[in-house]
Design a protein around this nucleic acid. Sequence first.
RNA 1: GGGCGUUUAGCUCAGUUGGUAGAGCGUCUCCCUUACAAGGAGAGGGUCGAGAGUUCGAGUCUCCCAACGCCCACCA
Length: 884
Amino acid sequence: MNNTNINELPTVYDAKETEEEIYKFWEDGEFFKADAHSEKPPYSIVIPPPNVTGVLHMGHALDGTLQDILTRYHRMSGYEALWLPGTDHAGIATQAVVEKKLRGEGLTRHDLGREKFLEETWKWANEHKSEILHQFKRLGASFDLSRERFTFDKGCSDAVKEVFVRLYEKGLIYKGAYIVNWCPRCQSAISDIETNYETEQGHLWEISYPLKGEPGAIIVATTRPETIFGDVAIAVNPTDHKYKELVGKTVVIPLSGREIPIIEDEYVDKNFGTGAVKITPAHDPNDYEVGKRHGLEPIWVIDEEGKMKACGAVPPELHNLDRYEAREKIIGMLSYQNFLLRVRDHEHNVGKCQRCNTTIEPLLSEQWFVKMEPLAKEAIAAVKDGRIKFIPQRWEKDYLGWMENIRDWCISRQLWWGHQIPAYYHKETGEMVVAKENPDPNMYVQDSDVLDTWFSSGLWPFSTMGFPNSETDDFKKFYPTSVLVTGFDIIFFWVARMITMGLEFTKKAPFSTVYIHGLIRDEKGQKMSKSKGNTINPVEIIDKYGCDALRFTLTSLCTYGGQDIKISDERFEYGRNFANKIWNASRFVLMNLEGVDNNDFDRNALTIPDKWILDKLNKTAEIVNDNIKNYRIGEVAHVLYDYFWNDLCDWYLETAKIQLNDENQKLNTQRVLRYVLDMSLRMLHPIMPHLTERIWQLIPRNYEAKAIMVCDYPVFNKDLEFPAEAEEMNLTIETIRSLRNVRQSLNISTSLKINAEIRAEGHELDVFKIIEPYIKRLAKVENITYGELNATVPPQSASAVVASSKIIIPLAGLIDIEEEIKRQEKKLNKLVTEKNSLEGRMNNAKFVENAPKELIEQTKARIDEINLQSGAINELINSLSVKA
RNA sequence: GGGCGUUUAGCUCAGUUGGUAGAGCGUCUCCCUUACAAGGAGAGGGUCGAGAGUUCGAGUCUCCCAACGCCCACCA
């Protein structure tokens, strides 16, 4: 790397080559490895483990970039930084994709059997695990692969067993029959938050249930006529006089003949439907509660596959019929026998499986649950008392709202891929033992269900650090972690569970900050998904634009409010162009560092532009540190972009060219350039690691260091403040801009040399004399002369007013007087408008009375300045008009 | 039904203690000036969704309305 010939560096930054080479350099040097025995204060982040179902998407790229920026920044800022990588076994999701693959081969998991199926799934998981980690490397991730973890590895599995047993012993895990969300396709229970509701256009059927042994009937409205065979009662509201006389009577279920009572229950809404509800406790959560209150035994009529159960309660011709086919058929039968009185269109919400979008079947079923309320107490307190802070803070409200209305968590899944529940049943007595190990494999069989995948991810911050052993080096050094970085979509699924579990089992909040960023969407604002075909693969973007370009662009799009981020391919040109700008600016500096010595710059030999850029750099460092600490990471990107491009490239490098040509200034300018480039690269490094490392390696350094990634991050330095020179440079810039403006607006060719007469007094005059060379070169001025401030304006000349001085540009034969007058009038108008507004304020007694002193003084000063400048412009216009 | 977010230049979006608006892209003009045409220089472009209020002063605070988006709850 160090043998590179600077003059042969390509003019276009080659991201691909650089990234590969640099990442390898970091890996070989073991720069990402965290030391648990370090004296430095710890900074740790555990990655939200990506599912092993697939590959990296843009959301991971954003999430990973932000974590890497925080990790790299803190590593450079004196912390022992650990970013712990890993993946999630993603129980239901992974099983689904593997089953899908098997289906392609004409197989089901049952054909393979549990053991063989798990083998297949492990294979799949391992392949994707390495693919995902490889992609994270392409992203420049500075994570410590020696600590890589998997939610289903030995350590995490031990943690799961430990937690399960302890919660069970504490009475916080129980097993029981409740209505759960059952996915007939996944063949498993799923939790409430894995169920999404969709509005569907359905029907409300009114069915007549005849009274037993007497004429008359009660009419019931239902959206699910196929469940009538599971009815155990008809319920009406106790205050509903319409049905007063029917309560206590018996009706006969149509098509079935079974007899059920008419009961009263508060749950019934008099105004909905007919005011009479069929009660089906086995297939509806509300009905289940009603049934329980009235001591009614549930009757199952739909099975786990969503088919009509082949049982006595269901007429034989419907046995094993799909629930929707059965519905059609039942409607026909009811209609034929005149039990169906009315059909109405009815919009209602239907639960869908988040994973496969199959309509959920509420099913009474025996499952395992975590009693959440006792655990939620501390999780609520931790956020309320500030032990855990959400950024942006508004998410705390969502979190607390959910926690405060927490419902028990159904944790058992009827799957194979996952942590098998550590409950064992005696083969003969059926006695159940909950323990980490099977008490006697000959006599006990393990519960066949596995745990919800989020159960293990909920332990992630501490299961990865050695838990249940809290004496490991990593646990002691790196737990609790510093911050959790994730999207808002998994606050309930994951963040909430980590907080409850962390507090319960480690007595500490697993992280003190939850940094929530927006979600990545396509250019139309739609969520990216494979089925929509609107996904953008981050690796393709990296191939096309470069990793640092991707990282910079994504970072720049992060707002403090955590808005969703719309991206399209072309947006990454922003980052690519910036990377190229950095590359070329650096190339320029490096090409001009030949012959530089090993000394730091000489403070006494600094020029105005030198001091100005040092001042800018210093201020930028201050702002950048402040912004990173406050998680305003998008702002960091903007500030650095503005500093690097607009200050460093557009102005300082241009002035440096002049100084480099001056033998007296050359050496010190080189030293300043070296320092400024070095510090600028360091500031950029956390966002754009490869490019900055690559260039830094080429700087002829006067200190020892192995890599930029372990250099100190620049901080504000009181000794590098140069306010006076900063002001003087502003005068320089303004003067040059005015001259350029004159040239352009009067259509004076750049090849044409012009002269300028500067009319200034006092300090401004002194400054002009110093900055003359810069003005000459950057504004392409041939000669500069000096004159009296109040002398008359020569004919045929353009002019500009800068600060308190005037610049006169004689343009005999070149100038269109009318144009110049117009130009000046435009400027004057602007000033006059501003002045009117300011004077309006100053004439307002209340403003003068109430506004802060500094603002009033500022306003006065500005009015003075405007008066001066507009006076000068008036004078110019007058002299031009006379001559015209 | 409850809650949250968004509405600012043609487009995409910034704008943290209230002090008369910024960026990138796009547009117009000029320029291959020995770091960079993925570039340089100059310019144009906004009554900050509507309305009301507080204030000397509101894109920024309060209220109300509208449109779009999201979350939670849930109606047999």
